[in-house]
Design a protein around this nucleic acid. Structure first.
Length: 357
DNA sequence: GCCACCGGTGGC
DNA sequence: GCCACCGGTGGC
């Protein structure tokens, strides 16, 4: 609805199969509110199927989100479709199975959201494996600083570059030319926020991982105590889940510690737009019987807002400088990122006594 | 036994 | 309330 500042998003739902966005019970309308968006209302998707475990990453995405509160200023947003499914659910809608397809999208298709592969879910497949897989990031989108439309980012690497520099180098539709796409602010948004997937706001100014390292974001299922976890995969394949882990790893592997700056590691996670995606810590107070609270009533004050400081930081787009377009395909790492001012871990990194700084 | 995933909490 | 961190464990 009204203007917001641009954001970046990632969508979940990718790699893991997700249900085709044919609304199984889709009420798109309601989403237009400011409710938080999406949940694929109840689009469940079977998260998993052995055969699907291919490799595709999906893309699809949201579009201009409509958070009414104008507060979400520019940020990175992650959006994803929920791929979750329980066995009970499955039982309930077995009859609908025939309508469901798992759809994989492919990143390698630059920027389009065309499904490249659809796999029919087979009822008889081991149903255990359907359940309990958390959703995955399915696509990355960034909001144009000018028109506020969402543009798909073709792959994680590009997304990370954009995210790293978003504050100094706002993203616009023109940026997509870097991957030979030709869209302008006059073109429709790439992604609609239609409630079939989950969106989350990503943090800006997160440094790209050091060369040879990969930053992994693992989403948790709805109702978990946290939204996601970040891991860094080292050049040797080790997965590190905290800065102390990284420090230890570097000490143990001095050969990989050369030139590595701890500031490049950020374990910050995105924030889901869906209000109650993450289970809140139970209040101590005596009052009511939490059990019977209607979920939808739970948190009336939507944006009372704690985390607003973030938004502020992202907020104003400065002038466009054209980030990584040294189009020799060389991404813009190598510029040391500004430290994200709210990255406590990064600041804290300085306290670690390690010589690889 | 490993590891992906989840819960919990101290400290800010 | 959020973040950083780490312990526990179910499922492979």
């Amino acid at each position: 609805m009204q203007s917001r500042s641009p954001k970046i998003t990632i969508k979940m739902g990718g790699k893991r199969p997700e249900i085709a966005p044919l609304n199984v019970n889709g009420n798109h309308e309601t989403l237009e509110k400011d409710q938080t968006t999406l949940e694929g209302p109840s689009v469940h998707s079977h998260s998993n199927h052995e055969t699907l475990e291919k490799d595709q990453n999906a893309l699809e995405g949201p579009s201009v989100p409509s958070h009414s509160d104008g507060k979400e200023t520019d940020q990175n947003v992650l959006d994803g479709s929920l791929s979750e499914y329980s066995s009970e659910d499955e039982d309930k809608d077995n009859d609908k199975d025939k309508d469901k397809q798992i759809v994989l999208y492919d990143y390698s298709l630059n920027g389009t959201s065309e499904p490249v592969k659809t796999v029919k879910k087979h009822k008889s497949d081991k149903r255990v494996s359907f359940s309990r897989r958390p959703p995955e990031v399915g696509a990355f989108t960034v909001q144009c600083a000018n028109c506020l439309k969402w543009r798909l980012i073709p792959d994680q690497e590009k997304y990370e570059v954009i995210r790293e520099h978003i504050t100094e180098q706002p993203f616009t539709c023109e940026t997509t030319r870097q991957w030979n796409r030709d869209v302008s602010c006059d073109d429709p948004t790439d992604l609609e926020q239609d409630g079939t997937r989950i969106w989350a706001i990503d943090k800006p100014s997160i440094a790209q991982p050091p060369p040879g390292w990969k930053r992994l974001l693992r989403l948790r299922r709805e109702g978990s105590s946290k939204f996601a976890d970040v891991y860094y995969a080292s050049p040797t394949g080790a997965k590190l889940r905290s800065l102390p882990d990284v420090v230890k790893y570097l000490k143990d592997h001095p050969e990989h510690a050369q030139g590595i700056r701890l500031e490049r590691f950020s374990f910050q996670i995105p924030r889901p737009l869906k209000e109650n995606y993450v289970k809140k810590r139970p209040k101590m107070a005596a009052s009511t019987s939490p059990e019977y609270l209607e979920p939808s009533l739970a948190v009336p004050v939507q944006w009372a807002g704690p985390e607003k400081k973030l938004d502020v930081q992202l907020a104003e787009p400065l002038s466009w400088a054209g980030p990584m377009e040294n189009n020799d395909g060389v991404p813009a790492y190598l510029k040391t990122p500004e430290l994200d001012p709210v990255n406590r871990a990064a600041k804290k990194a300085k306290r670690y006594d390690i010589n690889c700084l």
